[in-house]
């Protein structure tokens, strides 16, 4: 089965990103295809490499990056939601004249069309949020 995942909440504040991660990992381990993981609303905050959680806790951002690397996942952060919340990649940094970028490895910023495309292309779209 080809799956699309939508995540509407940021890390730590709400369990949505944890559930989505464990679901995605289980789906991959079962041999399903993850077409795309789309981060929307505060979910875009899952894509900043500047988070520093306590050492004895899970690192939600790094965990997504590692999963992306292992399975070649497409982790997409919504550009409009990202601009509101200060998630910046090198292109956005240049375009808006910011002094830094903060996007985590394995993530990319793109438009909302990517979510609709996932809906069209996938057998199932599963939404995680608050």
């Amino acid at each position: 089965m080809k799956l699309g995942i939508q995540i509407n909440e940021g890390p730590y504040q709400h369990q949505a990103s944890d559930t989505a991660y464990l679901f995605t990992k289980a789906a991959l381990e079962k041999g399903h295809e993850i077409f795309r993981v789309f981060f929307y609303h505060d979910g875009v905050n899952n894509g900043t490499r500047l988070t520093t959680p306590p050492q004895d806790d899970r690192n939600i951002v790094a965990r997504w990056s590692e999963l992306a690397e292992k399975y070649n996942l497409d982790l997409v952060i919504c550009v409009a939601a990202a601009q509101r919340r200060g998630i910046v990649d090198p292109d956005e940094k240049k375009r808006h004249g910011k002094d830094a970028d903060n996007i985590a490895p394995g993530f990319r910023i793109s438009g909302l069309g990517q979510l609709i495309e996932a809906g069209i292309q996938c057998d199932r779209l599963v939404v995680f949020g608050d």
């Binding site: 909302l112 069309g113 609709i116 069209i120």
Partner: peptide, 11 residues
């Protein structure tokens, strides 16, 4: 915003 962007896909 999703609905507006999605409209371009003619679903």
């Amino acid at each position: 915003e999703v609905v507006l962007i999605g409209a371009a896909f003619e679903q």
